[in-house]
Design a protein around this nucleic acid. Structure first.
Lengths: 218, 218
DNA sequence: GCACACCCTGAACCATGGTTCACTTCTTCA
DNA sequence: TGAAGAAGTGAACCATGGTTCAGGGTGTGC
């Protein structure tokens, strides 16, 4: 036995790996996946191009992992809210607000995750990401229908509509101007959430609305 | 004056040009813009690669023109409906049904126009296309609000929601399985339209619903 | 400190696919 | 019919950017 990786080395490798992913994440946040080049990642991470291939078998693999890492956090947040024990309509409102709110705050990243033109392999990851969203929405809708909070609609279709409406209205060419989103993000988010809720037959109660107003002013 | 283009030649050139665009359209309809290669277009059109460059300055120019040609037809149909003199809610229903219905029928093409990953220059064309949709929706909504058919909402945001919901729910990873769309396209379309109408505060009247039922059975 | 395995390097390599261009073929018209 | 200009050809060219690999450096265990 002439060589065995020590903890110190393992830690250093993990660090390098993290640095590579961090560099890639930075590039994505700046210019989307389109701006990600292996040579540039390497430069930003402070390693040589070839080194990347000691950690990831290909650019595709690297991008996939990055995509998963970033999207998993988002999905986790939504899933947590969705699995709480509140009434379905409450959960739906929270999930929609969270989804939309986070998309506004991290628009660049949200664009990369949701809307940016990417190639097929990443499109697969994205499809999973979006499908998960839709499933989260659908599960809440089902609960709501079961206990009569929501009228009997096709949950899969409604969920897909929501999953399409929110990103489209917030990012990309149909989104409001950036300065509007920056100056008054809550108003836009609320308007979109209102549309989606109305789409599934829910009208915001007065209390929820007021709550919103207060937040907006604050 | 040794050479002047005759009508016959002009006609032939126009024909070749059309053949090139038709070949490209065929490729797009089959495999999206990603499947479009200059050499393949040339082969399908029965000309040499170099010839393409006598008609279009670049691949980008060719694809742009193709995109415009195809999308102009779609936008024209919607615009015609939108500018009729019926009540706003009627027009909205018709526009949504047309938009969704056509997308289902020509799913492959709709995918290419609306959802397929494409590169930046084409994304520009697509942005125009989608913005036009949203404007059509918005103008109808405005009319509806003005004469009290529709509650007072932010029309731009609602329009963007609609423009996002319909394609997402019909094509791409969140769409129903293809066989479901083929066996019962009207049901899916109606469900989506219902969501969008509810989103802007319209409930389908009984007569309109019945109308739908009849069409579905026929 | 020696041998061995592992890690890092970055310039060279290669695949892809759009674009060019020297050449051939076709049209026009005197 | 033949000279001039337009249209067509397709193999060669080239830019881009992911991937490889031979060689040098670093850790490990004896």
């Amino acid at each position: 036995m002439a060589y065995r990786q020590t903890d110190k080395v393992a830690a250093r490798l993990a660090e390098t790996r993290a640095a590579i992913l961090a560099a890639a994440r930075g590039l994505v946040a700046e210019g989307g996946f389109a701006a990600v080049q292996m040579s540039e990642i390497a430069k930003q991470a402070g390693v040589a191009t070839g080194t990347l291939y000691r950690y990831f078998s290909s650019k595709e693999a690297l991008c996939r992992e990055l995509f998963r890492e970033v999207s998993a956090r988002e999905m986790g947040m939504l899933a947590t809210i969705a699995s709480s024990h509140e009434p379905a309509s409450e959960r739906l409102v929270k999930v929609l607000r969270t989804f939309a709110g986070r998309a506004v705050k991290g628009r660049r990243l949200a664009y990369a995750l949701l809307a940016e033109p990417v190639d097929v392999n990443l499109a697969e990851e994205r499809a999973f990401f979006r499908r998960t969203h839709a499933e989260i929405f659908a599960s809440i809708l089902e609960d709501g229908i079961e206990n009569g909070e929501i009228p009997n609609i096709d949950v899969r279709i409604a969920a897909a509509c929501i999953a399409g409406a929110i990103p489209t209205a917030l990012i990309g060419p149909l989104a409001p101007q950036s300065h509007e989103l920056d100056s008054n993000p809550d108003r836009v988010v609320e308007e979109i959430v209102k549309f989606c809720l109305a789409g599934v037959g829910i009208t915001l109660a007065a209390g929820q609305e007021q709550n919103r107003e207060r937040r907006t002013v604050a």
